[in-house]
Every structure is written in structure tokens, then in C-alpha cells.
Design a protein around this nucleic acid. Structure first.
Lengths: 68, 68
DNA sequence: TTAAAAAGAGGATTATAAACCGTAGATTTG
DNA sequence: CAAATCTACGGTTTATAATCCTCTTTTTAA
């Protein structure tokens, strides 16, 4: 599970960088806590499917593109 | 979110049926509670990514194949 | 080199996912 | 038909996802 979260987090972060969006702004747009988004990107937490969708919506991609 | 869970649940159920696996046995193989798997299939709960993977592992498919 | 912006990190709390109990109702099978 | 099997469904409890708040560290730009 730890690997899964890490890979997913890395993918999310990469996508965010690609867009040139600050973590801070990213969290705000996804209506999530900034520190939590940080934990997600670092792979420290196991997120729910609806949070995953909240993120992909902002990133402008599909969950498929982020899952390992 | 409710729609998301419902669609995901329906996809999981369909895949399980396809394999000819009982919900009961399915839960056991995925190491999840039987009643909880029932709720997942009915779209009543918002599951975490690692539970999603636990299910796909048993179903012999990828998360991509189940996500709406 | 420094100030400001951005990301890392962690404790404490709240919300909710997931487990653990069961019973009722279908559906199938002998 | 009865018995066995499978699913729906709900209440309660436990584990943990997610929030909120704060401070530190790193990065970037001036």
C-alpha cells in the first residue's frame, strides 16, 4: 500500500507541476486542505476515490492517468 | 460523489458476476468484510484507493477497468 | 543575501471508511 | 416443498481519512 500511495502521489505532483500550479492553489481549487494535499503528494496517506476525483478534476485529467 | 460510488459499485459487481464469484467468497479473497463489500457494490460507501486495488487484484483486472 | 513564496512536516481534533455484529428476504437447488 | 445459498440491509464499534492550526525548511526571485 505504501508503494501505491507513493506512486500515486508522485504522479499527482508531476501532473500539477506540468500545469504550473502551486500546491497551495491546487488544494484550494480542489477544496482540500493544503497540508493534506502535501501528504498526498508525498505518499503518506491513503486517499478515497472521491478525493482522487476532486484532484483529477482540477488537474484536467482522468483518474486512469494517475493510477499506477 | 454518490453517482461515482454507484457506478463504481455496479462495475465491480458486474466484473464479479462475470467471474462467477459469490459476494461472500469475493470478500474473503480480498480480505474485506462481507457486508462492507455489499455496500461497496450498492454504491453506499466511498472507498479508499487501496481497497479498490484489493478488489481489482481478486477480480484480475486493473482499477482503470472499473473507474467511471 | 535577503525577503517572500512555496513546500515539508507534525500534533490534535473531527469526520467517516471499514470492521464486526446480526436478521430478513430473495434465489437457487435437491 | 424444504434446505441451502446468496444478497440486502441496519446498528454499533474501531480504525483511519481528512481537517485545522502551527512552525520549519526549501526554493525562487529581486
Amino acid at each position: 500500500m505504501k508503494d501505491l500511495a507513493k506512486e500515486l502521489g508522485a504522479n499527482i505532483k508531476a501532473k500539477r507541476k506540468e500545469i504550473g500550479l502551486a500546491q497551495d492553489k491546487f488544494a484550494e481549487l480542489a477544496d482540500l486542505d493544503r497540508s493534506y494535499v502535501g501528504r498526498i503528494e508525498r505518499g503518506q496517506v491513503n486517499i478515497t476515490v472521491d478525493k482522487l476525483y476532486a484532484l483529477t478534476k482540477v488537474l484536467g485529467c482522468h483518474a486512469r492517468d494517475l493510477l499506477p
